[in-house]
Amino acid sequence: MSGARPARVLPRRLLLALPLVAAAAGGLGFYALLRRMEAGRYDPHGVDNPLVGHAIPTFAALPAQAPATTGFGAADLRAAGRPVLVNFFASWCVPCRIEHPQLMALARAGVPLWGIAYKDHEAAAEALLAEEGNPYHQLARDESGRVSIDWGIYGVPETFLIDRAGIVRGHWAGPLSADLVASEVRPMLGKYA
């Protein structure tokens, strides 16, 4: 075989090195994803919301959630005149309770926070807010969960940032942490203020 011409040997060598190259590329890809997962930039269970960058979905006014006396609809959100955080929550959801202190802090800082109780008993949600404090400026409830589906909600809590033109600018699925508020929510609020 040493007699074979090099011109024929080279492609053969390249072909036989192909599996190594392919496996290395695959391995690097997996490594990159693992690193992103560790850094929190990749969540295999996360679903990107297609609303980001688009106008909020149109929905008729939802009924009020006590202690509020009036609910709200898409028109009210668009007429808010300043950036608003919309938070979907439920009293039966444990991560919502984890998130609650962050919402209270945001409310104290004067950020307008609009809440939508997702598939909740009105009394249970009211009791929760009475017990842990009510961070919401506006409160409505989506008993059937249909409006939430229009927002692409797949679990609670989820939070959206709506700019003054009614365009969705930010979306966070899962509880907001202090880190997340500081690194993403606050800067974005500042940007669209």
């Binding site: 190594l20 290395a24 693992l34 997962m37």
Partner: peptide
């Protein structure tokens, strides 16, 4: 557990990488 994942990946790279490297080197014979 991503940390465990990295360990595993390194291990796989060693086993599979060595094997395919040996293949690329010696298979032409």
């Amino acid at each position: 557990d991503p940390a465990r994942g990295v360990f595993i990946l390194v291990l796989l790279a060693l086993v599979i990488g060595t094997a395919l490297g040996l293949f690329a080197w010696r298979a032409p014979r």
